[in-house]
């Protein structure tokens, strides 16, 4: 399974929740598969999906799912101790770990080699870290959403991309409709 297949699989599970989606292909794929006003698409700023999602979860009560990638977590590694030490039980961080920088041509990341993001998250103090196979991502998300406990899911999948159009929606429109969903 590649990332876009995971996104297709989990789309019905996340469509009613606030989703902050990582820059590049993940946002473009989610936008193509199931565009929702409850999706905040990052058009730039690699690495900050988990931080934006945590800030959002701490500021209000609705459940928040940050969809991140292995490369993006590696570029903002400081996020994991911050998450661990600022527990928001309405927050789920889903790291889709394909062991590569997908949006830039599938160059390998260190997460695909010796570095275990689940082990790093645990070492940083995150208390509820789940590593799963791509096929089990949907079930892991359903379990996390059913519970009221902050959860970090590391879904291990194959690298690979599909053809997707870029998102041409204006960022202020993305932000405005997202905030209206948050407030609704």
């Amino acid at each position: 399974m590649i990332r876009s297949e995971i996104l297709r699989d989990i789309a019905p599970v996340i469509s009613d929740h606030l989703v902050v989606c990582n820059i590049g292909l993940p946002s473009q794929e989610l936008h193509m598969i199931d565009d929702q006003p409850s999706n905040f698409y990052m058009l730039g700023t690699m690495g900050l999906s988990s931080s934006i999602g945590l800030g959002l979860a701490l500021a209000q009560g609705k459940k928040v799912i940050s969809i991140d990638g292995d490369g993006s977590v590696l570029t903002n590694f400081g996020t994991l101790p911050t998450i661990a030490n600022n527990v928001a039980d309405n927050y789920i961080l889903l790291i889709i770990d394909n062991g590569s920088y997908g949006s830039t041509g599938d160059q390998p990341t260190y997460a695909g080699r010796k570095t275990s993001l689940a082990a790093v998250a645990t070492a940083c103090g995150c208390e509820n870290v789940v590593e799963c196979r791509a096929e089990d991502t949907r079930a892991a998300l359903e379990t996390a959403l059913a519970g009221d406990r902050m959860t970090i899911i590391v879904a291990k999948c194959e690298s690979g991309n599909i053809k997707v159009p870029v998102i041409t929606m204006d960022p202020v429109v993305i932000r405005d409709r997202f905030m209206k969903t948050v407030q609704a």
Binding site: G47, S50, S51, I52, G55, A59, Q60, N76, T79
Partner: peptide
């Protein structure tokens, strides 16, 4: 831990 991370947190809090 880093200021860009902090700005991400602030963006999320604002939208929240």
């Amino acid at each position: 831990n880093k200021e860009d991370e902090g700005m991400g947190l602030c963006a999320g809090a604002f939208m929240g």
